[in-house]
Structure formats: C-alpha cells, structure tokens
C-alpha cells in the first residue's frame, strides 16, 4: 500500500541525511521525497511517499520518530488529504503538432513556460493520476524530458 508521510523536522544540516540514511540502511523504499522550510524557518516539512504493508509503515513511522531531529510524523493517508505534484515536460512541438500540444495542455490547465523552435516546455500541477494522464497523452507526440517534483501533501483542515 502507498502511504504519504508528512514529517516535520528541525531545519539543521544533516537532518535530511538522517532520514534518507534511515531508509537506505533499513531497506525501506522511498518513492518520492520533497522537503522545504515551513512558516517557522527552524522547521522543515518533508513529504515522503513510501510503500509497504501496515507493519512496515508502522516501523517506518516509529523509526522516523526516533530520530532526534524529527519533531512530528503523520501518516496523512490515514485521513482526508490533498496532494499535489508538479511536472515540467519538454515535448516535441513542430509545425504540425504545436496546436495540438497547446490544446492538450489547456485541457489539463497547464502552462507553457519555455518555447524553442521545436519544443514546448509545459508545467502541469495536480494529483499523481492527472500527471500520469498528461504524460500518457503527450508521449505519442514525443516527450524529450520529464522533471517531477515529487508529491507534497497536507491533511484537510477540519470543516467545523
């Protein structure tokens, strides 16, 4: 099962490598990892996507928590949450396909962020399923490069 963990950790040198070292050292898998400062500049938030059965994810959560630099670990897949990923795709855009690429991008509410005589670089944001859909549709036209940010996610705020 896929789990998205949100990890608050001290914004200190080495804190990130403690987390990644834990995963490689104990053979846990990381599908993606995104980290940046939070409102409090002393604290970073990391969104980590991993896969494993319940026992493994429980062990991952506990092991993360055990790291001295880690403040809080939440398995946000346990409740309601929003997740987003951004992707930059450089796709072939020659005379005969330019218009079609633009149309597709538009449907997915993407943007063209760079243009060359033969390519567009487009930016798409959304859930993993949407990113996958865009890629699948653009692939036959000719994708030259894909850069993905990895997922960021947050639990939905309580509604009352």
């Amino acid at each position: 099962m896929k789990h998205t963990l949100s990890v608050l950790l001290q914004n200190k040198p080495g804190a990130l490598s403690r987390v990644t070292g834990l995963f490689s050292g104990r053979g846990f898998n990381i599908e993606s990892l995104c980290v940046a400062e939070t409102l409090d500049s002393k604290v970073s938030c990391m969104t980590l996507v991993t896969r494993g059965d319940d026992a493994i994810v429980e062990q991952i959560t506990k092991q993360l928590h055990k790291l001295i630099d880690v403040i809080k670990v939440t398995d946000i897949t346990e409740g309601e949450f929003v997740e987003r990923e951004m992707v930059l795709i450089r796709v072939k855009a020659e005379a005969n396909t330019r218009a079609e690429v633009l149309r597709i991008i538009d449907i997915f509410r993407g943007k063209v962020v760079d243009v060359s005589p033969t390519t567009y670089t487009v930016e798409i944001t959304g859930q993993e399923t949407k990113i996958k859909a865009v890629i699948d549709i653009l692939r036959p036209i000719g994708i030259k490069e894909i850069i993905r940010t990895g997922t960021i996610a947050t639990a939905r705020a309580p509604k009352n």
Partner: peptide
C-alpha cells in the same frame, strides 16, 4: 565522522 557515524550513534553533532 558525523556522516560516518550517523547510523551507529544515537545522535551526533558537528559543533559549528
């Protein structure tokens, strides 16, 4: 040494 001992200490520090 902080990098080397990260997985075999409870915690470690480089005092900067």
């Amino acid at each position: 040494i902080v990098g080397i001992t990260r997985p075999c200490t409870k915690h470690n520090y480089l005092v900067s």
